[in-house]
């Protein structure tokens, strides 16, 4: 496990992904700083609050990165789990070491989850840092109109990061399964990202309303519920349950596929 994390976070690619994520809040903050001001109510939620409070950079960046950037980076990491090892040929050496297929799968998924935790955290921290550097930092107005002090705002930000980490866990499980199907990591990555986009589009179609509560992306934007007073935990709970379902289904599929698979690469 430790070695898996070392490999994941020792890679330049992982750092490039995290840097790209960190670039989102920085871009937003710089753009807002350079522009004359954002008319209220325009653009993504929270954008107009940034000039008053730098901490909103983190919230805005989170909102912007949820639909594509976070799933993209998670898709790259999750799609790479098994297929990446297979394409490098190291999978066969791990298996004859012997790592054990189930154990390898679990370790790989755990590493992907670790990335799911780190990725939103990167957005939040980079956002808070750049926000604090370019704008005043003060009490934060919640959606409910209540005002909280920066230390509590930091807690809320961590809650949001946790919410997103949970949100991405299901997608990681899908990526893990897709990764066991192929030896072409790019294929598994692309398929994972495409599935996340399709799920979000389906979530917008009223004709598919019956399907909406079953889409893994359904609660992604529910992280706003962490910004209410009091915190609305319903979506967190529903989201966690939904993601657990996805983990169970795709975990079982990945297990079935990977333990019966001939490693020929």
């Amino acid at each position: 496990m430790q070695s898996e994390l070392k490999v994941l976070f020792g890679r330049r690619r992982t750092w490039a992904l995290l840097l790209a994520l960190a670039a989102i809040p920085i871009l937003i903050a710089v753009a807002v700083r350079l522009s004359s001001g954002v008319p209220s109510g325009r653009g993504p939620a929270f954008l107009d609050r940034i000039t008053q409070n730098g901490l909103f950079v983190a919230f805005t960046a989170m909102l912007v990165s949820v639909p594509l950037f976070l799933p993209l980076t998670v898709g790259v990491v999750a799609g790479d789990t098994i297929a990446g090892e297979a394409s490098m040929g190291t999978l066969r050496y791990l298996l004859v070491a012997p790592a054990g297929r189930v154990r390898l799968l679990l370790v790989k998924y755990a590493a992907a989850l670790a990335f799911c935790v780190v990725a939103p955290l990167t957005v939040a921290l980079a956002g808070a840092a750049i926000g604090a550097a370019l704008f005043p930092v003060g009490p934060v107005t919640l959606l409910s109109g209540d005002v909280i002090q920066p230390p509590e705002a930091a807690v809320r930000m961590l809650l949001i990061a946790a919410y997103m980490a949970v949100s991405l866990a299901g997608l990681s499980a899908i990526g893990l399964f897709l990764s066991t199907l192929t030896v072409v990591p790019v294929g598994a990555m692309a398929a994972t990202v495409v599935i996340s986009v399709v799920s979000q589009i389906a979530d917008q179609l009223p004709q598919l309303e019956w399907l909406h509560p079953w889409l893994f992306s359904h609660y992604w934007l529910g992280f706003g519920d962490m910004l209410r007073q009091p915190v609305l935990w319903d979506s967190f709970g529903s989201n966690a349950l939904l993601q657990a379902g996805y983990i169970a289904v795709f975990g079982a599929l990945a297990y079935a596929r990977f333990t019966t698979k001939d490693v020929l690469s």
Binding site: V7, G10, R11, R12, M88, G89, T90, R92, Y93, V96
Partner: peptide
């Protein structure tokens, strides 16, 4: 100990 179909390693390590 095994060497199967050529060596394979993480090129970045």
């Amino acid at each position: 100990g095994a060497l199967v179909e050529g060596p394979a390693f993480y090129p970045f390590l």
